[in-house]
Design a protein around this nucleic acid. Structure first.
Lengths: 305, 305
DNA sequence: ACCATTCGCTGATGTTAGTCAGAGGTATCA
DNA sequence: TGATACCTCTGACTAACATCAGCGAATGGT
């Protein structure tokens, strides 16, 4: 796991001690309990790994995709697939598009087994909820959702990438699509996409936030002569908003800028991106007069590092 | 896992569908993420199981205790211990009290390794908290504590036992100790303990709530001629209060009574047990005149089943 | 037509995690 | 002093979860 983050700008100290103890206790209790229940409900006389694989096959999937998703060795996965094949649960054949690639698809029996696994998974969840009173059930479900979201947020990884890379482009398209929609300017996303060379100067950076391999956010840093730099294209996918990722990206870009000897950071943004406006202000950015003629810009900010 | 619970008296239906989906999603995310981190931080070139064992040894422990706590086969545990011994981390000798029992104690090197594991465990927890902003850290820790408590509550198992068994006696002692303390009557716990035969009549029951093998609560059902029965000695250990266990015990006893053809359930309680009073009332019990001359009783309740 | 690359399978090998039956030492009690 | 129960260890075995090198088939670029 590559983490380019610098130590966070937090007031650690005592509070973190008891927090760490809570997290440890949680890890212990929860993994033990859930692990035991999974064995009980999902093993079904077959290795748990094989059940999981059958689940991932779904309505048919290429072997390479399964390998990436389950993070398994190619040899090992091959054997697991053959085990499912021997049980008559899946069929394997070449992928139509590329005959090197193997495609796994479920047989009717496999589909039935998958449905059953699904049902067992539900039973497992119910066995957790069932002993609780309705009030406590709601509280548990809410707390689980919160833990899951925040654990997800903590798994996000910030990495510098080339501004013309596929991941960068994906982020930028989503960024402009949202901007155009919110500002109702009716522009075209493709024509709005900037030239990647714009961000390939010395000291420039394009950072993408990854969650389990897929891009969920980005931010660019562009340096100018005179000891200042600009933040551009900050975007976070709606699915992971409200988890502090924007703030984390911002802090990360600031530390990159600081490392590069930048003294002042500027940025522009659009009045329709209300969350962004609030975040910049609370992070110490102050309004300054227009300094660009960017189409979408309505507000300009600056912060001394 | 023995569960004698009947289906709970809840309004299941739609709400439980989405709850089940949340629980499943939580299980997936959390076990994957925490599991991966544990491998990364705690394996230390040795099987994870051995690390866990070293942790449980602490400042010295009998093998039988370790076996019970880790739930391992005696042969398997024996081998794990010898592995730690070969690494010079523990020493094994006969227990002074009973020379059949083997006692495992850490060497200085073992103590050092244990400290290191402790540190790595902290690192793991910090690696989860570190990427988050302080606000989100607090939220995560709180939600984790909530999940842990409620998951624990859901793991509680209700089992009928003999009213004279060790577990029953442990519960009753705790029950009377608390009663005496709260009502400040200065009585002696030992002299207050009732004769177990009192609860060994036909249709009587003594139910103990178990959490991971240890008793955390109890309740007795005593039948009388004339189609009615009495609930007695309901107690829940302070550590797991506020998790709905009392309510669950109550529902469980009611269904036992219903199965036995009981039409009216009575109970007495003490005004100092304020949580109990509230619970009985909200569960549909109504105040009735004194019907016993129990020393501690100040309130009498009845419910038609 | 050739070459480098990609994809997956196979065989060899290893570790972790466990189960089971029985041996042998130790304790308890009649 | 037996008989019986208890506690741990040993040896034999199995399942699950991998890792790695190399092979052959398919593909894409030149």
């Amino acid at each position: 796991m590559v983490t380019t983050d610098l130590p966070p700008n937090s007031n650690d100290g005592e509070m973190i001690g008891s927090a760490v103890a809570s997290v440890r206790s949680f890890n212990r209790t929860v993994t033990e309990r859930i692990g035991a229940l999974e064995q009980e409900y999902l093993a079904r006389g077959r290795p748990l790994g094989a059940s999981r694989l059958l689940w991932e096959v779904g309505e048919g999937e290429d072997v390479r995709v399964l390998r990436a998703r389950l993070g398994l060795d190619s040899g090992y996965l091959s054997r697991l697939v053959r085990q499912l094949e021997a049980e008559g649960l899946v069929e394997v054949g070449p992928s139509p598009a590329d005959r090197r690639v193997r495609h796994v698809s479920p047989t009717p029996k496999g589909r039935a087994e998958r449905t059953l696994l699904d049902r067992r998974s539900d039973d497992l969840a119910e066995s957790i909820l069932e002993p609780l009173t309705p009030t406590h059930r709601t509280r548990l479900v809410d707390a689980m959702a919160e833990v899951e979201r925040l654990l997800t947020a903590s798994a996000v990884d910030l990495r510098p990438v080339d501004p013309g890379s596929a991941d960068a482009t994906r982020c930028l398209r989503a960024y402009f699509a949202e901007l155009i929609e919110r500002s109702a300017t009716g522009l075209d996303v493709d024509s709005a996409l900037p030239n990647p060379d714009e961000l390939r100067g010395a000291g420039d950076a394009f950072v993408v936030a990854y969650l389990q391999g897929s891009a969920v956010g980005c931010c660019a840093l562009k340096q100018y002569d005179g000891g200042w730099a600009e933040l551009k294209r900050m975007w976070v996918t709606p699915r992971v908003r409200g988890l502090g990722l924007g703030r984390r990206l911002l802090a990360h870009m600031e530390s990159l800028a600081r490392q590069a000897g930048v003294g002042r950071l500027r940025l522009d943004t659009n009045e329709h991106l209300v969350e962004a406006l609030a975040m910049y202000r609370s992070a110490g950015y102050v309004d300054i007069p227009r300094y660009t003629d960017e189409v979408f810009a309505t507000h300009w900010f600056e912060k001394h590092l």
